[in-house]
Simulated assay, not measured.
Amino acid sequence: MTVENIECTMPDRPSRRAFWRDPRVAFMVKWIASVIQIAGYAATAFGVTPLNLYLFLGGVVGWLAMGFIWNDRAIMLIHFVALGAMLAGMASG
Rank of each mutant, 00 (worst) to 15 (best):
G47R: 02
D12H: 11
R24D: 07
I75A: 02
A65Y: 13
M76C: 15
I36M: 06
V60L: 08
V3R: 02
W63F: 10
I32N: 00
C8D: 15
F56V: 15
N5K: 11
A85V: 12
M66G: 08
F68K: 05
G47M: 02
M28R: 03
R16Q: 15
T44G: 11
P50G: 05
W20K: 01
V81G: 14
K30C: 04
R13S: 11
D72I: 09
F27R: 05
W63C: 04
V35L: 08
A65D: 09
R16P: 06
A39L: 15
S34L: 03
W70L: 11
F19K: 02
T2S: 12
A43H: 06
F27M: 14
I78L: 10
A18L: 15
V35D: 02
A65H: 11
N71H: 06
G40S: 05
G47S: 03
I38C: 09
L77S: 10
P50E: 04
A18F: 14
G84P: 13
M28K: 04
F68P: 14
V48W: 13
V81W: 12
A18H: 14
C8M: 11
I36H: 03
S34C: 08
S34P: 10
S92D: 00
M66D: 12
A18P: 12
V35W: 07
Y54N: 14
A74E: 11
G58A: 09
I32Q: 00
E7F: 00
A91S: 03
A43S: 07
N52D: 07
K30S: 05
A91F: 02
M90R: 04
V48P: 12
K30N: 01
H79K: 00
I78E: 01
D72Q: 08
V25I: 14
F27V: 12
A42C: 11
P50F: 10
V48I: 13
P11S: 13
G62F: 09
L53K: 05
N71Q: 06
F46N: 00
M86G: 12
P14E: 05
F27W: 04
F46M: 01
D12M: 12
A39R: 05
F19R: 06
L87S: 15
F19S: 02
D12C: 13
I75L: 10
P14D: 04
I32A: 00
F27A: 14
F46V: 00
K30Q: 01
G58L: 12
V48T: 12
P14F: 15
P14A: 05
V25S: 12
W20M: 00
Y54A: 13
G58N: 08
P14N: 05
P14I: 07
L55H: 01
F19C: 01
N52P: 15
L83G: 05
I69E: 03
V61G: 10
A43M: 10
R21G: 11
P50Q: 09
Q37R: 13
F56Y: 06
K30G: 07
G62Y: 09
V81S: 12
I36R: 03
T2K: 08
C8W: 01
V35M: 11
F19Q: 04
Y41R: 02
F19V: 02
I69A: 04
W63V: 07
A88S: 10
I38G: 14
N52L: 05
G67T: 03
M10L: 13
C8G: 15
I36C: 05
M86W: 08
A74M: 08
V48Y: 13
I6Y: 00
G40M: 03
Y41Q: 06
Q37D: 14
L55A: 04
